[in-house]
Design a protein around this nucleic acid. Structure first.
Lengths: 189, 189
DNA sequence: AAAATCATTTGACAATTGTCACAAAATCAC
DNA sequence: GTGATTTTGTGACAATTGTCAAATGATTTT
């Protein structure tokens, strides 16, 4: 994939960026092809990249002792990043590909530097952060007000195909219930 | 309070803003004094302001049927806003003052317009959004990994004085447990 | 294809928490 | 201060969910 193609993708996915910003953005980007199971970000480490999924999917999870809890999933056309690593801090989650995937990798530091002088890029960060905050608020709302059964049904409805890509174990932890409880929710119909 | 004083407060609270931005910012700001119980933002309505608390405190809550769940509390020197109203949408939470408070009110639309041309202001929004996202992620993490007792103790430790300002009913819903369960957690010592 | 590994389901039981009803304590209004 | 209202605490019980163990089903490896 050459840099013109990357520019095209950036342009269509991030319409807030104007022509010059797209070109600047693309300078710090590269195309990557990874196998299922590849970890893009490790809990406990600092990282200098974020990603856009062109094809494939990923999960983010926290661990505590032996317990593993998924915090989100990402699919085609979605941005993969963590707030912590984006701000130069140690990540508290791991990000792993759920299948062989094609990605565009961006250099965090360079894009952030770009944002200090480039309004478009700063607006891009704003939009992305807003999206993320809305996602988190919605998730909290659902945890407070919806039963685990409603959350399950809502998710399957909102993200068609999720059952094909994500294991029920991961799905259960994402929904905030044990594997067994999810199994029982699915059982009654 | 005159506009120079407001400028001083904005300058010290939002160091990311340079001198000119502070002055521009202050143009869309005003000082307010409200009584306890005043609602700054109503669930189901659009609003055109966000606030900085100079003195006092506030809570944000969702309602569903008769159930009321606090999503956050804000104290001195903190910003009060909701993502939804900030983006011109109907709010899904209500914000109410917990005591007589002194606030600075900002006009959302004007500040957003300022951000389209002013890099500093755009960075200010970035910082504020990042802070908010970190807060939400931390809250989700605690809900997944910590017992309600640990969450209670952690909160009391992190926010000294919260027990004096917030009712136990609100605190319980914020922690994600029933009033009675919180009462029992507090009981055992 | 058999063996091995991994994911999911199911059962039995325990632990946690919610709900309802009411009592006690604190706060507010007059 | 007194009564009324609101907030908090407690008990009894039910409902939900987690945990552990084992069985079944699916997938991968050899």
């Amino acid at each position: 994939m050459n840099s013109t193609e990357i520019e095209e993708i950036i342009k269509s996915r991030f319409p807030v960026l104007n022509k010059d910003s797209v070109i600047a953005f693309a300078k710090f980007s590269s195309f990557l092809n990874f196998k299922k199971g590849k970890k893009l970000i490790y809990e406990g480490k600092k990282h200098h990249s974020f990603y856009l999924i062109l094809k494939g999917s990923a999960k983010a999870y926290y661990t505590k002792e032996t317990k593993e809890v998924c915090s989100w999933f990402a699919f085609e056309n979605e941005v993969i990043a963590t707030i912590k690593t984006f701000n130069g801090l140690v990540s508290n989650e791991t990000i792993m590909l759920l299948e062989d995937s094609k990605l565009i990798q961006f250099n965090t530091k360079s894009i952030k530097e770009l944002a200090t002088t480039n309004l478009d890029v700063s607006h891009f960060l704003n939009d992305t952060l807003t999206e993320h905050a809305v996602f988190l608020e919605e998730k909290l709302y659902q945890l407070q007000f919806m039963s685990s059964e409603e959350r399950y049904k809502g998710l399957v409805n909102d993200v068609p195909g999720i059952l094909q890509k994500v294991s029920l174990t991961d799905l259960a932890s994402f929904l905030g219930v044990s594997r067994e409880t999810l199994s029982r929710i699915r059982g009654k119909r």
